[in-house]
Write a protein that binds this DNA or RNA. Sequence first.
DNA 1: ATTCTGACTTGCT
DNA 2: AAGCAAGCCAGAA
Length: 138
Amino acid sequence: MRMEYVEAVLDVVALIPAGTAVAYGDVAELLGSGGARQIGAVMSHHGSAVPWWRVLKASGDAPPGHEREALALYVLEGTPLLGNYAEYLRTGEGRWRVDLMAARWAPSDGDFDRIDAVAERLERTLRKLSAPDDEMTV
DNA sequence: ATTCTGACTTGCT
DNA sequence: AAGCAAGCCAGAA
């Protein structure tokens, strides 16, 4: 995974507000590069410094392996949830998930500007890297 | 070049 | 609602 890609992903994730969330695939789409699995790979290895819990599966299930910690944060942030998470908090049993329909982040115009800037910077860099002999390639 | 793997997604039982 | 199969995208071996 190129560092430029990792940084671009983290830059976008850092913009997601508390109480909202997006799916891995959403980030890839906003970035216009790579797919859901790539975002998952980035979050898995480099997500610790950003609000990683706000990026999750399209189903609303929390990032695998971090369900407990994520749930505590969702409750704290007032993120819309579905299912019996209360029981999960008590006993560790019970199914729940984020209500992505209600919680999904809707970027403001300003957010879109920042996202576009990140996406453009990334694309520019990747293009340069993939075409060492630019000049003639038109 | 081929195969395997994974913090993914979607559609169908 | 819960599993499963395929499709998907890239990096690693």
